[in-house]
Computed example of a mutant assay.
Amino acid sequence: MNHIKIEISGHDTNLFHTEECTELDFILGISSMFDRLLPETKKMLVKKLEKLIDLQENAIIHQKRKL
């Protein structure tokens, strides 16, 4: 069974997972957090996520470390 645990603090967001998790499992796990958002917030978030489509793997993580 695949498990994903998400911890969010004021500084970091951590994802813990079992080795069997796939990229799709991550997307579905993160997407489940959107259930409680207002429709307007979901629209705003989707616009932000669209900017990430063309980024290479780990691009956000490496960018964050440079700051």
Rank of each mutant, 00 (worst) to 15 (best):
S31C: 14
H3Q: 14
K51D: 00
K66T: 02
L38V: 12
R36P: 00
M44K: 13
L24H: 01
L15I: 14
D35W: 08
H11L: 11
E20K: 15
T18K: 07
F26A: 01
L45P: 00
F26H: 03
G10N: 15
T18D: 08
M1F: 04
D54V: 02
D35T: 12
F34P: 00
L37F: 13
S9K: 14
P39D: 00
E40S: 03
K5T: 07
H11W: 13
L24S: 03
I8K: 15
F34M: 15
E7F: 04
S31F: 09
H62C: 02
I60R: 05
L55A: 07
S9P: 07
E50K: 15
R65E: 11
L67E: 09
D35S: 06
H62D: 10
K43P: 00
T22W: 02
I30G: 04
G29M: 08
F34D: 06
D54Q: 14
N14V: 13
Q63R: 15
L37W: 07
I8Q: 15
E40Y: 02
N58A: 05
I60H: 01
S9E: 04
L67W: 11
I27Y: 06
I30Y: 08
I8N: 08
T18Q: 08
K48Y: 11
L45Q: 03
I60K: 06
I8M: 13
L49D: 02
D25S: 11
E50R: 15
G10F: 08
N14P: 00
G29D: 01
E23L: 15
